[in-house]
Design a protein around this nucleic acid. Structure first.
Length: 211
DNA sequence: TCATTAACACGGG
DNA sequence: CCCGTGTTAATGA
Protein backbone atom coordinates (compact mmCIF):
# COMPACT_ATOMS: atom_id res chain seq x y z
CA UNK A 1 0.00 0.00 0.00
CA UNK A 2 1.46 3.40 -0.87
CA UNK A 3 1.51 6.43 1.37
CA UNK A 4 -1.46 8.15 -0.20
CA UNK A 5 -3.69 5.10 0.17
CA UNK A 6 -2.57 4.71 3.76
CA UNK A 7 -3.44 8.34 4.52
CA UNK A 8 -6.76 8.03 2.74
CA UNK A 9 -7.61 4.92 4.71
CA UNK A 10 -7.00 6.66 8.03
CA UNK A 11 -8.01 10.25 7.28
CA UNK A 12 -10.06 10.06 4.07
CA UNK A 13 -13.24 10.55 6.03
CA UNK A 14 -12.22 13.92 7.45
CA UNK A 15 -9.60 15.51 5.15
CA UNK A 16 -10.25 16.77 1.63
CA UNK A 17 -8.39 15.18 -1.27
CA UNK A 18 -6.09 18.20 -1.68
CA UNK A 19 -4.91 17.98 1.90
CA UNK A 20 -4.32 14.24 1.62
CA UNK A 21 -2.24 15.00 -1.47
CA UNK A 22 -0.13 17.55 0.41
CA UNK A 23 0.22 15.24 3.37
CA UNK A 24 1.52 12.51 1.10
CA UNK A 25 4.30 14.86 -0.02
CA UNK A 26 5.23 16.40 3.31
CA UNK A 27 4.87 13.55 5.76
CA UNK A 28 7.65 11.25 6.89
CA UNK A 29 6.64 7.75 7.99
CA UNK A 30 8.25 6.28 11.05
CA UNK A 31 7.59 2.91 12.59
CA UNK A 32 7.96 2.19 16.29
CA UNK A 33 8.14 -0.88 18.51
CA UNK A 34 6.40 -1.83 21.71
CA UNK A 35 7.97 -0.17 24.73
CA UNK A 36 9.80 2.49 22.72
CA UNK A 37 9.85 5.95 24.34
CA UNK A 38 8.63 8.28 21.60
CA UNK A 39 8.54 11.51 23.57
CA UNK A 40 10.05 12.22 26.98
CA UNK A 41 9.82 15.00 29.53
CA UNK A 42 11.49 18.33 28.81
CA UNK A 43 11.96 17.33 25.20
CA UNK A 44 11.38 19.86 22.44
CA UNK A 45 9.21 18.53 19.67
CA UNK A 46 9.95 19.43 16.09
CA UNK A 47 7.18 17.65 14.22
CA UNK A 48 3.63 16.58 14.78
CA UNK A 49 2.77 12.87 14.77
CA UNK A 50 -0.32 11.41 13.14
CA UNK A 51 -0.89 7.91 14.41
CA UNK A 52 -1.50 5.53 11.51
CA UNK A 53 -1.33 2.19 13.32
CA UNK A 54 -0.76 0.83 16.80
CA UNK A 55 -1.36 2.55 20.12
CA UNK A 56 0.61 4.96 22.31
CA UNK A 57 0.19 5.50 26.02
CA UNK A 58 0.58 8.98 27.41
CA UNK A 59 2.14 9.04 30.88
CA UNK A 60 2.58 11.72 33.50
CA UNK A 61 5.35 11.44 36.05
CA UNK A 62 5.12 12.60 39.63
CA UNK A 63 7.79 14.43 41.62
CA UNK A 64 8.55 11.32 43.68
CA UNK A 65 8.97 9.08 40.65
CA UNK A 66 5.37 7.84 40.58
CA UNK A 67 3.89 7.23 37.16
CA UNK A 68 0.35 7.55 35.92
CA UNK A 69 -1.31 6.59 32.67
CA UNK A 70 -3.33 9.54 31.33
CA UNK A 71 -4.81 8.06 28.16
CA UNK A 72 -4.14 6.09 25.02
CA UNK A 73 -3.74 7.41 21.49
CA UNK A 74 -5.09 5.27 18.68
CA UNK A 75 -5.22 5.22 14.90
CA UNK A 76 -6.24 8.62 13.52
CA UNK A 77 -5.26 10.46 16.72
CA UNK A 78 -2.59 13.04 17.23
CA UNK A 79 -0.89 14.22 20.40
CA UNK A 80 -2.34 17.44 21.79
CA UNK A 81 0.88 18.01 23.71
CA UNK A 82 2.88 18.27 20.50
CA UNK A 83 0.46 20.82 19.10
CA UNK A 84 1.18 23.09 22.03
CA UNK A 85 4.88 22.27 22.01
CA UNK A 86 5.35 22.89 18.31
CA UNK A 87 3.45 26.15 18.18
CA UNK A 88 4.66 27.53 21.46
CA UNK A 89 8.19 26.13 21.33
CA UNK A 90 7.62 24.58 24.76
CA UNK A 91 9.01 21.49 26.40
CA UNK A 92 6.96 18.33 26.70
CA UNK A 93 5.09 17.77 29.96
CA UNK A 94 4.39 14.15 29.22
CA UNK A 95 6.06 10.92 28.23
CA UNK A 96 4.78 8.91 25.27
CA UNK A 97 5.50 5.19 25.20
CA UNK A 98 4.47 2.74 22.47
CA UNK A 99 1.89 0.32 23.83
CA UNK A 100 2.44 -1.93 20.82
CA UNK A 101 4.12 -1.83 17.42
CA UNK A 102 2.84 0.85 15.10
CA UNK A 103 3.39 3.60 12.58
CA UNK A 104 3.31 7.40 12.74
CA UNK A 105 3.32 10.01 10.02
CA UNK A 106 5.40 13.02 11.05
CA UNK A 107 4.19 16.42 9.86
CA UNK A 108 6.73 19.30 9.81
CA UNK A 109 5.75 22.15 12.14
CA UNK A 110 5.84 24.67 9.32
CA UNK A 111 3.30 22.80 7.24
CA UNK A 112 1.13 22.09 10.20
CA UNK A 113 0.82 25.83 10.91
CA UNK A 114 0.30 26.70 7.27
CA UNK A 115 -2.54 24.21 6.89
CA UNK A 116 -4.44 25.64 9.85
CA UNK A 117 -5.12 28.68 7.69
CA UNK A 118 -5.42 26.80 4.43
CA UNK A 119 -7.68 23.86 5.17
CA UNK A 120 -10.91 23.96 7.09
CA UNK A 121 -10.75 20.23 7.79
CA UNK A 122 -7.23 20.50 9.22
CA UNK A 123 -8.25 23.36 11.49
CA UNK A 124 -11.23 21.33 12.66
CA UNK A 125 -8.98 18.32 13.24
CA UNK A 126 -6.57 20.32 15.40
CA UNK A 127 -9.40 21.79 17.47
CA UNK A 128 -11.12 18.45 17.76
CA UNK A 129 -7.86 16.89 18.95
CA UNK A 130 -7.55 19.47 21.68
CA UNK A 131 -11.14 18.97 22.66
CA UNK A 132 -11.04 15.19 22.83
CA UNK A 133 -7.73 15.13 24.75
CA UNK A 134 -9.15 17.66 27.16
CA UNK A 135 -12.09 15.35 27.72
CA UNK A 136 -9.74 12.40 28.17
CA UNK A 137 -7.92 14.40 30.82
CA UNK A 138 -11.18 15.21 32.58
CA UNK A 139 -12.12 11.56 32.74
CA UNK A 140 -8.61 10.72 33.93
CA UNK A 141 -9.08 13.20 36.75
CA UNK A 142 -12.51 11.78 37.55
CA UNK A 143 -10.93 8.36 37.74
CA UNK A 144 -8.33 9.45 40.25
CA UNK A 145 -10.53 11.71 42.32
CA UNK A 146 -13.86 9.93 42.41
CA UNK A 147 -13.35 6.29 41.55
CA UNK A 148 -11.93 3.57 43.69
CA UNK A 149 -9.06 1.45 42.56
CA UNK A 150 -11.25 -1.55 41.71
CA UNK A 151 -13.19 0.46 39.12
CA UNK A 152 -10.03 2.12 37.80
CA UNK A 153 -8.52 -1.33 37.35
CA UNK A 154 -11.54 -2.57 35.41
CA UNK A 155 -11.48 0.53 33.19
CA UNK A 156 -7.77 0.05 32.65
CA UNK A 157 -8.18 -3.61 31.65
CA UNK A 158 -10.95 -2.76 29.21
CA UNK A 159 -9.03 0.11 27.62
CA UNK A 160 -5.87 -1.93 27.35
CA UNK A 161 -7.82 -4.76 25.78
CA UNK A 162 -9.35 -2.35 23.29
CA UNK A 163 -6.17 -0.64 22.12
CA UNK A 164 -4.41 -3.97 21.70
CA UNK A 165 -7.35 -5.66 19.97
CA UNK A 166 -7.00 -8.59 22.31
CA UNK A 167 -8.92 -10.17 25.17
CA UNK A 168 -5.64 -11.14 26.79
CA UNK A 169 -3.47 -8.48 28.37
CA UNK A 170 0.26 -9.14 28.40
CA UNK A 171 1.23 -7.31 31.55
CA UNK A 172 2.49 -8.14 34.99
CA UNK A 173 0.71 -6.99 38.13
CA UNK A 174 3.69 -4.74 38.83
CA UNK A 175 3.41 -3.01 35.44
CA UNK A 176 -0.29 -2.41 35.98
CA UNK A 177 0.41 -1.05 39.45
CA UNK A 178 2.96 1.37 37.98
CA UNK A 179 0.57 2.66 35.31
CA UNK A 180 -2.19 3.19 37.85
CA UNK A 181 0.28 4.59 40.36
CA UNK A 182 -0.61 1.93 42.93
CA UNK A 183 1.18 -1.00 44.54
CA UNK A 184 1.34 -4.56 43.37
CA UNK A 185 -0.25 -5.92 46.53
CA UNK A 186 -3.43 -3.99 45.85
CA UNK A 187 -3.51 -4.92 42.16
CA UNK A 188 -2.92 -8.61 42.90
CA UNK A 189 -5.69 -8.60 45.49
CA UNK A 190 -8.18 -6.80 43.23
CA UNK A 191 -7.32 -9.00 40.26
CA UNK A 192 -7.82 -12.08 42.44
CA UNK A 193 -11.22 -10.72 43.45
CA UNK A 194 -12.15 -10.17 39.78
CA UNK A 195 -11.08 -13.71 39.00
CA UNK A 196 -13.29 -15.03 41.79
CA UNK A 197 -16.18 -13.03 40.34
CA UNK A 198 -15.58 -14.85 37.06
CA UNK A 199 -14.71 -11.70 35.10
CA UNK A 200 -11.11 -12.60 34.28
CA UNK A 201 -8.66 -15.50 34.31
CA UNK A 202 -5.22 -14.91 35.77
CA UNK A 203 -2.11 -16.46 34.28
CA UNK A 204 1.54 -15.69 34.65
CA UNK A 205 2.36 -12.58 32.60
CA UNK A 206 -1.11 -12.27 31.14
CA UNK A 207 -4.73 -11.72 32.02
CA UNK A 208 -7.75 -12.95 30.03
CA UNK A 209 -10.88 -10.84 29.98
CA UNK A 210 -14.13 -12.79 29.93
CA UNK A 211 -16.76 -10.03 29.95
C1' DT B 1 -11.12 1.63 56.71
C1' DC B 2 -8.08 0.93 53.22
C1' DA B 3 -3.37 1.55 50.97
C1' DT B 4 1.49 0.80 51.45
C1' DT B 5 5.63 -1.50 52.80
C1' DA B 6 8.27 -5.38 53.84
C1' DA B 7 8.67 -10.00 54.12
C1' DC B 8 8.03 -14.78 52.88
C1' DA B 9 6.54 -19.10 50.35
C1' DC B 10 5.40 -21.21 46.09
C1' DG B 11 6.11 -22.58 41.36
C1' DG B 12 7.40 -22.28 36.45
C1' DG B 13 10.86 -21.40 33.17
C1' DC C 1 18.08 -19.45 40.55
C1' DC C 2 15.14 -15.58 39.17
C1' DC C 3 10.79 -13.62 38.51
C1' DG C 4 5.89 -13.17 38.97
C1' DT C 5 2.40 -14.15 42.04
C1' DG C 6 -0.41 -14.72 46.42
C1' DT C 7 -0.70 -13.60 51.17
C1' DT C 8 0.08 -11.68 55.74
C1' DA C 9 1.47 -8.57 59.45
C1' DA C 10 2.72 -3.97 60.74
C1' DT C 11 2.19 0.78 59.92
C1' DG C 12 0.13 5.01 58.35
C1' DA C 13 -3.21 8.31 56.38
Amino acid sequence: MDLKELLTETFGGIFEAELIEELAHEVRLQSFQEGEVLIDFDQYIKSMPLLMAGAIKIMREDFDSGELLLYFLEKGDTCAMTLACCMGDKKSEIRAIAENDGLVAMVPVMKMEEWVGKYRSWRAFVFESYNSRFNELLSAIDNIAFKHMDQRLIDYLEETSKVNNSQTIQKTHQEIANELNSSRVVISRLLKALENEGKIILNRNNIELLS
